[in-house]
Design a protein around this nucleic acid. Sequence first.
RNA 1: GGGCGAAUAGCUCAGCUGGUUCAGAGCGCCUGCCUUACACGCAGGAUGUCGGGGGUUCGAAUCCCUCUUCGCCCACCA
Length: 895
Amino acid sequence: MTEPLAPQYNPSAIESELYQWWTEQGLFSPDSHAPGSAQPYVIMMPPPNVTAVLHMGHGLNNTIQDVLIRFERMRGRRALWVPGTDHAGIATQNVVERELAQEGLTRFDLGRDAFVERVWAHVRETGSAILEQLKAIGCAADWSRTYFTLDEGLSRAVRETFVRLHEQGLVYRGHYIINWCPRCLTALSNEEVEKEEVDGKLWHLRYPLADDSGHLTVATTRPETMLGDTAVAVHPDDDRYRHLIGRQIRLPLADRLIPIVADDAVDPAFGSGAVKVTPAHDPTDFEIGRRHSLPSIDVMTPEARISLAAPDRFQGLDRYEARRRVVAEFDAAGLLERVEDHRHAVGHCYRCETVIEPRLSDQWFVRMEPLARPALAAYRDGTLRFVPERRGDDYAAWLEGIRDWCISRQLWWGHRIPVWYCDAAKCGVTTVSRTDLERCPGCRGPVRQDEDVLDTWFSSWLVPFSSLGWPERTPDLATFYPGNTLVSAPEILFFWVARMIMSGLHFMGAVPYTDIYLHGTVRDTLHRKMSKSLGNGIDPLEVVQRYGADALRYSLVSGMSVGTDVILDPADLEASFAAGRNFANKLWNAGRFILTNLEGPTRPLAGRNSDVIRRDELTLADRWIIARCDATVAEATEAYQRFRLNEAAAAVYHFIWSDLADWYIEQVKPRLYGDLPGGDVARAVVAQTFEVALRLLHPAMPFITEALWRRFPGRPESASISVAPWPAADARARDPEALRQFGLVQELVSAVRAIRAEYGVQPGQMVRAVVSGASQTAAAALKQERSTITRLAKLSELSLGETAERVGGHAVLSDGTAVFVPLGDAIDVGRECGRLGTEVDRLGKLVESQEGKLGNEQFVSRAPADVVERERQKLSTWKDQREVLVKKRELLGCS
RNA sequence: GGGCGAAUAGCUCAGCUGGUUCAGAGCGCCUGCCUUACACGCAGGAUGUCGGGGGUUCGAAUCCCUCUUCGCCCACCA
């Protein structure tokens, strides 16, 4: 690491090497970087799916977590970021099934054991690829604690949880209508169904009365389900139909007799006011069926084809073919009354988008209300804090309306349900067990385990404690539970975040974290979510390759404010990431300049020894940059703490680029080069302020800050910025006077530069400047930084006082100090008159409106005194400035 | 159907508790510069009815109402 630094920052040359060094040093593990007495700070990484490939959403999510964990680590906490992967039941099974399909096979061809082995092989091969990718963007997670939701330990936790909840009466098996995906061939929870509004139809079908005395019209969006109708329901108070209650319908096509029943669930105002009742295919109908002891006829196969329960000619038809056929037959029989357009919400599988079919089946459920109550209380009493706050309302609303959680899945990949059935006729016991059963505890006969597996979220909702060893009482669990912050996409608030809170409270007696930061979504410029299917994604690794991890991270962090979406342009990576790349390069070159100039005598800025730099040795510029640095420390620290990462990034960016590089480094050059005395002071100040800036920036841009920081002279080989102490604001650095005075210096330089540009003065051409009307402090400041001013404004001479010359460029600084740049023949007097004229007009308008404001009795009497005083100050400054310019115009002889 | 959010420069967005960082930043654009840290740079510059309308207030990008447009979440009216 001692080779000379290249003028162009080349991230790929340092990133992987640094990352490897960090991990070798164990810097990401609290065991090695922090004393045991330090307060822990814990983040649980949302485990990516094993089959996942890093996309920008992961990039954003993990960058935020990494910024926070690095920040807290530097602040001295025992920072632990636990990474892991999720076995992702349906998603992973789908991937492997697709693979098999390429070979013309289905999972049934392989059989359960061989299929599961095949999935394991796939997972072993590609399962942790995404974690490797996270390393490429710099994630400082503790890889020694990486978990997988199908690990032995986590599997034990899952089983313990299931059994315990069962013992507590909170897990039960039930025969209900659940959401069924006919493609994945499994039940889904309510949360796994995505509702989508679609334009559908409402078919009005005529059901003849059994005695041929007429008909009753029912309205339905799914005519094919009529094959399973077992009643027609009307509202008990509906006068139109009251006389029909208890009579029979002859169900067309199926040719069955079904009763007309009365039920409160029917809305007389909708459709015809009569509802066909299909208990096997609709949740409401199922309830009606229960109340009226109606039979359930399941007319669909798991694949959503018409089953053997329907007349022959429908059997085997796909549900939509069946729909057309049913409608056609009703039409042919003159029983199709009418068809209406009807917009309604239809559920889709969150994994494959297939339309969900409500289906009657036996499933396992978790009784959620008892778990939800404490989770809601933790929000209401302020234990939980959401960022942004409004997300808390979504959380509360979901908990208030919570429904039982269907946790069984008809898949092969996942945690097998720990339930064993005895099929012996005389025994038939069902056993829920922590350990695998060989024989029935009742009759010692053979048992068979439940075929189903558990919802993948049933393992991930435990990770805040299962990943730390629960149900064992491990030291990790004692130290790192509960954690602190959860960073997540809002999409998984219910799937994961809320459920972790419930499980944490139930099994550990404490919420797993108190701060819940829900960030936005990464979208393209059309505000569409980035997705593989749309092909509008940006590969974070490509960005890392082209611009570096720090550029990626900085661009994400700075382009994101609390809870808002991040918009990136997949068609123009340059536009999306130039800011980060440019900044990294700027930083690199500032560092290159500073580090190569640190050789030479220097003395400490603070400390006990007598060699320390005295305050009176500091120039105005020194005091200014130290004060600016201190203000930036306060600003950035506050912003990081409040999760306002973009503000923290902007504060440091501005300090480094606009203050340190544009002004201070320029100011300090003569001293560093030995052209002016005070090189030791300059070295101390530039080194200190830059070093502080690097630390402030490290959470957001870890690689480049580490690379530069380690190159500081005298740095021990083992030192890492990642565990360097966080900069503290220092009251001694505060210096409002220096901020104001150096501000005038900057204004003066800028004013001269603007005049030079305005009149096309050649870049190499020196000019003179005359300053008049400066206050004592202003004059003192300009004198102190005279050499800075003359150099940066390219002045041959800077004089204070009046001059007889009239022709040149004019400007007035914010404190009323006048600047005059004599330009002799070079200047177009008319042009300068015009320029001054518009400026006088502008100030005139300001003065006018300000006088209006201050002349307003209401304002003066009702606004706070300090506001009024400030406004008076403004008025007098503007008046002074206008005055000066008016005089200049007179001197120039402007008309 | 219910709830929520957003609309500010050509683009992406800051602007938090009404009043000194109040109209800003980055990218893009224009002009001039290869000034020995950086052309991924330096210096200077242009660009806005703060979505429309109404209101509260001495004062509104900021608070309230309303409309328009976009987005999100929730929902068993078949």
